[in-house]
Amino acid sequence: WGGCVAPPTPQIRLRCQKGIPPSLRGRAWQYLSGSKVKLEQNIGKFDELDLLPGDPKWLDVIERDLHRQFPFHEMFVSRGGHGQQDLFRVLKAYTLYRPEEGYWDVPWRHLGAHPLSLGLQQAFWCLVQICEKYLPGYYSEKLEAIQLDGQILFSLLHKVSPVAYKHLSKQKIDPILYMTEWFMCAFSRTLPWSSVLRVWDMFFCEASPCAAWRSLPHLSPCRDFRVVLVLLKHTLGSSDKLKSCQGQYETMERLRALSPKIMQETFLVQEV
């Protein structure tokens, strides 16, 4: 993994598609996301931010959310425990690093999978990379990037599954209504955890621009889109499936409670 600077070799790409072994995942993500390079370029930066007091406005919100982020993760379960304290420091540092974005409850869910045990600095730069490189603009004011991605997604859907496209258009369901959580949380609240990790493995591997629509300035990884397209296609892609989604609400409900079958890692990774 040490040699895997962008762009990843075909061998590494294949490894990512097959899933990175859990014991290596944290380290692999560090290399793939480029957070290791970022850290080396900014030695001491995290410690500097860590010593600052932080904006009370953000500290208050972070504290309130700390114990509810990973209620079932043993590392984060105890109030004031190591896991929570570490998370707090990483997030506080981020609000100081990007004061205009401040605290946003979503990106730090990624840290749950990125072992903080690699070190606070490492986790911090990984968070920075996720927000800047993989989800650029998603956490900034007015959600402009996500709205734009919604429109791109919708036009892609037109090609991939005209049936689903027609259905969503007819019911006037704007992409923002269903894709916000998927995109912003990079599926961490939607898919089962094992699928999330597999999707993220591929996601980290595919950050370089590859397709036509990526020539847009905000550049989102196409894997992200493909995952959503697969989910939409298999949920709303045939007239048979649409029978039980006659109303706007029924459709939204269906999209919120996807069939476990299509979320299974083997199925999803293969389809994507």
Partner: peptide, 28 residues
């Protein structure tokens, strides 16, 4: 944020109370 919108809905529909994650987008 954090005024208890999700908790009100949860209480009304499930008659229960739990600390929930901040809502992203919308829930139903």
């Amino acid at each position: 944020t954090s005024v208890g919108k999700s908790s009100l809905a949860y209480r009304y529909v499930k008659n229960d109370f739990k600390e929930s994650l901040p809502t992203v987008g919308c829930s139903f």
